[in-house]
Design a protein around this nucleic acid. Sequence first.
DNA 1: GGCCCAATAGCGGCTAGGAC
DNA 2: GTCCTAGCCGCTATTGGGCC
Length: 306
Amino acid sequence: MRVDRLLSIILIIAKKRLVTGKDLAEHFEVSLRTIYRDIDKICEAGIPIASYGGKGGGYYIMENYSLDNLFFDKEEVQALMTVMNSINILFGRNQQFNDIVMKFEHLNKEDLKHDKLSINLSHFSMEEELKEYLSLMNKAIEKNRLLIFDYVNRKMEYLERTVEPIRITYSHGEWYLTGFCRIRNNLRNFKLVRIRNIKLGEGFNKKEIDNETIDRILTEGYENRSIKVVMKFTNKIGLQLSEYFPKKSITQDEENNYVVEELYPYEEGLLKYILSFGKECEVIEPDYLRGELKNYLLDILKKYQD
DNA sequence: GGCCCAATAGCGGCTAGGAC
DNA sequence: GTCCTAGCCGCTATTGGGCC
């Protein structure tokens, strides 16, 4: 606790230029005597804090002393502030967040007026819901509370899930909740856009699982229900393929068509995803997926026959 | 592992003094 | 009068070592 206070004192003095011991004592809810001792320790650590006595006096950091190099360079601060502000839009501010932002703001006052990087982590279809959901999930993770919600499955049915939340992830343009599903009795990722009617449940005893183990279990689960899909694309769309697939998955055949090999979870959404490429894409393997795609297209065709 | 004890850290209160 | 400086004292919580 004391180390935190010492660091905060340095940053407050640096930000406000001149601050009295009384103000610091009130801010940290300690005695004036404690603040004087803290200032002493800070000076011992090599940070030159000086003081003016009398009315209008207070503590200040001596001129020509920069704190910047103790922490991050300008580019690092700029990038972190951009991320922090993006997170702020979704999660809202609290005291902890304000303290972090204050520290960053001090480190790079001028450059922060001109963002070189802009990140929008919201989702167009659920701007307001996303804020509400993320805030609730964040609270559940902090307080070790269960989350109860309806989750849509591949058959487009909503089933109630009770989940011990672990973390929130933004990956490949989507937000996910990772948690231990009490229905499936295993770790699961839940796509936020598929969650409805979320609410906080009772408290639970948090399982001690590190991030590496979580990632391994989730990856194994993903691979177990994945199939290898080979797709052929006309060269009309070829140059855009790198927007959708890793470059190492893309090759060219003798007729200048592009061939993509990828692993995908076998579910309803896969057919829709493939069809989003229109007539420029043809599934080569597996055969049963070709058959399912054909039947799906015939069903659509029936709707448009007079 | 649990208990005891001494050392240490951190803190608040008080006081006297100096600078402005 | 306001604010910083610094020594002293006592209290409490934490830490580390020794012992059973």
